[in-house]
Amino acid sequence: MNEETVTKKLMFYFPKCECDKPIIYHLVKDHHLIVNVFRAKVTPEEEGYLVLDVTGTEKEIQDGIDFVKTFNVTVNYSGKGVILDEERCTHCGYCVPYCPPRALKIENGATRKVAYNESECIECLACIRICPFGACTSAF
């Protein structure tokens, strides 16, 4: 078994009925995961979203995800809370200085194409407020 710890960025979608359960508590307590929540929107009587990093061994993470799935929660591995619409982005680079973790950066010095590295994104939403073209949007 691989004991090496890894960090994965995940997005949970909670349907209306699952918002009152202490899921994070069980991830930490029962599955020994280190949890770093970037952004959450959980409103009682409504649906909820949660974007977080989980750190642990591959097995612990998989067990944690299996546990979360028993609650009718949708786990999203790709396509997190902040989405860059490639059709709207003109690659002007205006957003680059405003992105604290450098998830948005000029990928190629010759073409000056802007690349979005989703795994680096901390969901601060600065790009959403900044982008003049409305290319950055939030899933929730």
Partner: peptide, 22 residues
């Protein structure tokens, strides 16, 4: 284009409003 300039001996980050790519 490097994304940083020196102003008053301090590094200031700069971003473009025009798209060189386009």
């Amino acid at each position: 284009r490097t994304g940083q300039i020196q102003v008053h001996d301090e590094t200031v980050e700069v971003g473009s409003l025009s798209s060189y790519y386009k």
